[in-house]
Amino acid sequence: MATENLVYERPEAFTEMPTHYCPGCTHGVAHRLVAEVLEEMGVVNKTIGVAPVGCAVFAYNYFDTDFVEAPHGRAPAMATGIKRVLPDRVVFTYQGDGDLASIGMGEIVHAAARGENITVIFINNANYGMTGGQMAPTTLPGMKTTSSPNGRDVETQGYPIKMSEMLSTLEGTGYCVRRSLHDPKNIRLAKKAIRTAFETQVRGLGFAMVELLSTCPTNWGMTPVNSLKFVEEHMIPAFPLGDYKISDAIKQIKI
């Protein structure tokens, strides 16, 4: 009788390369959820990922699928180009908040408005991680970053942009939800949402995005545990979790 049972292993959609992400960062969790979903759906060998500019710039090192690397913010445009000529492939972008909600605002809004059949994984950690923690469009009011050293002053630096709420107003958006990665229960809910977002694509039901509230312990200057608490106590009130748009056709999808 076996004395050991394998209960957790690397998904087939992952390469063997260790990630470069900081300890406590939830990028690794988000990556894993996407990899598990691709594997469970049996679409690994027909998936083409589009990496962003930001911390996930090297996402292509970790997913064992074809991958391209987009200019900053342009991932939805590149994904559009790929999906339009290869409509039977699975195409996803993986973007951070600076990439998607600032420099790439035009590309994401219009990809959603056109109802592009792509899946977008949107990591919201309230700052520009890769460049060392500058203010992002999602930075909370009063939150200190390296470019808002006295805390984000909404009078001069504006208010956070709520992407899921915004994109849910567009007819082309089929699926648009916000989840969080701060505890196991929410991680499970996030995975279900990611699965639905890919199912939306393979059924041709329009643009799908999952926004994931994520941590950035290094740039927030917090321990990983305190970062998770910060998400729960400060990020969720500012960016409420929920289903912002689920079209009737997508509601019928049983996972």
Binding site: A77, M78, T80, G81
Partner: peptide, 10 residues
């Protein structure tokens, strides 16, 4: 910008 990056993707 969108157009050339769609070209890039395709």
């Amino acid at each position: 910008l969108g157009a050339i990056n769609m070209v890039y993707g395709a």
